[in-house]
């Protein structure tokens, strides 16, 4: 039974940066390009008996945005921490994210160490 951190962002640069930053956690990172793909991947993982330790979610994405994803995810999973990725021009989205059930947030661009710091506020 494995544990994964799911990073959902339409930018591959952000996805690999998150993966890079979270190497130190020792928890493998799964990537998805948007909310819909993430939900699909999570379903497949849980069916295999694996689990999501945490999600890191961009708010602005095509197909299914981050807020919608969080609402959907929270229907089945109350406790897994979810962190919202925003830019400073969309800080109002942080509130929307929290209302939908996000646990924390980080504003892009971030340093790898900053992200790691935020992640370690929720999982150890």
């Amino acid at each position: 039974m494995g544990k994964y951190i799911m990073v959902v962002d339409d930018s591959p640069t952000i996805r690999v940066s998150v993966e890079f930053a979270l190497k130190a956690t020792g928890i493998p990172v799964e990537q998805a390009e948007n909310g819909a793909e993430a939900l699909k991947k999570i379903k497949a993982l849980t069916e295999k008996g694996d689990a999501i330790a945490m999600g890191i979610i961009d708010v602005n994405m095509p197909q299914m945005d981050g807020i919608t994803f969080i609402k959907n995810f929270r229907k089945d999973d109350k406790f897994t921490p979810l962190i919202v990725l925003t830019t400073e021009s969309e800080e109002h989205k942080i509130q929307e994210g929290k209302d939908a059930g996000a646990s924390g947030w980080i504003v892009k661009p971030f340093q790898p160490a900053e992200l790691l710091g935020v992640v370690q506020r929720f999982i150890r």
Partner: peptide
């Protein structure tokens, strides 16, 4: 809009400040 938004975020992450500021 979304394209510039994404470009901004990604360039910021890799530390290309001039592109980051400009796309902002």
């Amino acid at each position: 809009f979304r394209s510039f938004h994404t470009l901004k975020g990604s360039s910021g992450i890799v530390g290309l400040t001039s592109i980051y500021n400009f796309s902002h």
